[in-house]
């Protein structure tokens, strides 16, 4: 495993498109963090910086940065399809890797990128929480850190879907377009078609995005106003409810398992030359 990781390290750290896309991811992430407080100054009563306080900061950042995972999936697609296009999968097999190793090295890359994304959001949330919080106790600060586990699973799932698309299509441009079409077109269209049915919550991308759902801003608002009065929550029924969190995690795990199994079957059967 260390050997496979080292091989990936040599390939990736010298690959400009990888470095550029990762820099873009970092930039988009950082810009988001800078821009939100700037918007905040123009909105009275409800201060957006409230959501940067412990313990809400963990949930809020996980929710708003979730779409960036698509960028990580694009990186995985780009790298995997290039292996096919440059015939370097073939070279690695000739010199002694098994076909399973080819998948395993990409899987390790996905794990490393997922850890990187989780670490980034973890450190950012921690920093913002320390800057914006009034009350600072260890218990409050750590209250919602469980979301990091879900964030890791979300990033991992996105990239595994990307990996499967790359293994299936092999062509870089077509794979990127297909993934984006799945994420931004097919999934929303299916959502609209199935809007009357509960099955809509089982759509793969929907279950992944629901891993880091929109935090309960209503409750936050209530706390901010220090209101004793209970707000009529029926007015907020339009807020998406979705599946039970554990069922949602189970569904994502099943989808990830299926995508990995499909990718494994593909790499075993694919012609590498």
């Amino acid at each position: 495993m260390r050997k496979l990781l080292h091989i990936e390290q040599i390939k990736l750290l010298n690959y400009n498109p990888f470095r550029i896309t990762l820099a873009l991811y970092f930039l988009a992430f950082s810009l988001g963090i800078i821009i939100y407080p700037a918007i905040d100054k123009q909105i009275p009563v409800i201060s957006l910086s409230d959501v940067f306080r412990f313990p809400d900061v963990w949930l809020f950042l996980a929710w708003i940065t979730e779409p960036y995972n698509a960028l990580l999936a694009l990186i995985v697609i780009m790298i995997t399809t290039k292996e096919f296009n440059n015939h370097t999968f073939k070279t690695q097999v000739i010199f002694g890797l098994s076909r399973s190793d080819l998948l395993l090295q990409k899987l390790l890359l996905v794990v490393v990128l997922s850890l990187f994304a989780t670490l980034l959001i973890g450190l950012t949330s921690l920093s913002l929480g320390l800057i914006y919080s009034y009350k600072l106790t260890f218990k409050i600060a750590m209250e919602n850190t469980w979301i990091l586990g879900r964030y890791f699973l979300a990033a991992f799932s996105y990239m595994i879907v990307g990996l499967m698309v790359a293994m299936l299509i092999k062509n870089t441009a077509l794979s990127l377009l297909s993934f984006l079409a799945l994420r931004t077109f097919l999934d929303p269209v299916l959502w609209l078609i199935l809007r009357e049915h509960d099955i809509k919550w089982y759509l793969p991308f929907r279950t992944i995005t629901r891993l880091t759902p929109m935090p309960d801003l209503l409750e936050l608002f209530q706390r901010k106003m220090n209101s004793e009065e209970a707000i009529d929550e029926s007015a907020f029924d339009i807020l998406p409810k979705g599946l039970d969190p554990w069922l949602n995690i189970l569904m994502v795990s099943i989808y990830v398992g299926l995508a990995l199994f499909f990718s494994y079957s593909l790499i075993q059967r694919r012609r590498l030359s």
Binding site: K3, I7, I10, K11, N14, T88, Q92, F95
Partner: peptide, 21 residues
């Protein structure tokens, strides 16, 4: 022969060395 086009000859051969142990 197919190698990583953006890598130097040495780095390409390092990958082969890693594969072969």
């Amino acid at each position: 022969p197919h190698f990583y086009p953006y890598l130097s000859l040495v780095k390409n051969l390092r990958i082969i060395c890693d594969i072969k142990g």
